[in-house]
């Protein structure tokens, strides 16, 4: 069974480059196209927490180190 987890994305640090969204294997991230942070940039957010498998791909690829990953303790 795949592990479970969730991510926290810092809204102000995110620049909306979309790299985390395209590299997420379970498509649980998305870019918020209706809202922006204080720099006027769309930010990524966790859409579906149940899908997150704590693979860290989004956090590794994130250029601005905006993502923190948590894994469910077995």
């Amino acid at each position: 069974m795949p592990q479970k987890g969730y991510v926290e994305i810092s809204v102000e640090v995110c620049k909306g480059c979309n790299l985390c969204v395209i590299h997420c294997p379970t498509e649980c991230l998305a870019l918020n196209t209706s809202d922006t942070n204080s720099y006027g940039l769309h930010y990524a957010y966790l859409v579906d927490e149940d899908k997150c498998i704590a693979c860290q791909n989004c956090a590794v690829i994130c250029p601005d180190a905006a993502i923190t990953v948590y894994k469910k303790v077995a």
Binding site: G5, Q56, A59, V60, T68, Y70, K71, K72
Partner: peptide, 9 residues
């Protein structure tokens, strides 16, 4: 019930 596994250095 969760543990931290990746954060900004």
């Amino acid at each position: 019930g969760y543990e931290l596994i990746y954060k900004r250095p």
